[in-house]
């Protein structure tokens, strides 16, 4: 079974604990195994916290003042028994089994065949269920529209053959974007040579990987 498909939301599955009562409002699109599957690798050891990615995202997507879709902030995280503070660029992980999609009752959140998770603003009621469902805290309610908002991997730029604005602007090359199905893509080259980590929970299959999280980079 593909990782982004869930059991049917029947009463039997509900009582067995296999699904929640909330049914997926929109059919889940299987992420293509042959076409492009966009993903990103963040080299934490190279991030200087200059916030150029945040500014570029705000400018590219014409966000109002104070709004942001990504953030390179000092973040507290735990691995095993150790708690660390790390400068961690945070954005939507465009999970293969995105928890925000079944949480949305109006089907406003959809996943394209290339894996990019998008929010249809006109269909969003601003209920905040997807914000609560995202385990990575990558979604928010936009203060100007009252609807849910998150990183889109700059889908309009990707469709035009460009990289996301944050990747273009990063002065240290800490953000690597590309097709995870292509063995020679920048993310795959980095993942093949250095140990990478993702954020919990892994069953969401986040497509955002971190290098050098424990200073081994």
């Amino acid at each position: 079974m593909p990782t982004n498909l869930r059991p049917a939301p029947t009463r039997r599955n509900l009582l067995a604990g296999r699904v929640a009562a909330s049914a997926p409002a929109a059919p889940r699109i299987q992420v293509a195994a042959t076409g492009p599957r966009w993903g990103m690798v963040v080299d934490v050891a190279s991030c200087t916290g200059c916030q150029a990615c945040t500014v570029a995202c705000t400018d590219e997507n014409a966000l109002p003042p104070g709004a942001q879709r990504n953030l390179a902030a000092v973040t507290e995280h735990a691995r095993g028994d150790s708690v660390r503070l790390t400068l961690l660029p945070r954005l939507c992980a465009h999970c293969a089994a995105a928890p925000c999609i079944p949480a949305c009752r109006t089907g406003a959140i959809v996943q394209r065949p290339d894996g990019i998770v998008l929010t249809t603003e006109a269909a969003c009621t601003g209920c905040g269920d997807c914000v609560a469902a995202c385990p990575f805290g990558a979604r928010r309610i936009a203060p100007d529209t009252g609807t849910a908002d998150a990183c889109t991997f700059c889908a309009h730029r990707v469709d035009a053959g460009l990289s996301p604005a944050c990747v273009e602007i990063c002065p240290t090359g800490a953000l690597l974007f590309g097709d995870l199905n292509a063995p020679g893509s920048p993310p795959n080259r980095a993942l093949a040579t250095r140990p990478a980590r993702t954020l919990q929970p892994q069953n969401a299959a986040p497509q955002l990987f971190y290098l050098g999280l424990d200073g081994e980079g």
Partner: peptide, 21 residues
């Protein structure tokens, strides 16, 4: 599969209006 770490704080506040309760 890459190893994983647990995120403790969130970048954006969780939106859960109390009227839902």
């Amino acid at each position: 599969m890459p190893d994983s770490v647990t995120l403790i704080d969130l970048a954006f506040p969780v939106a859960w209006p109390p009227w839902r309760t």
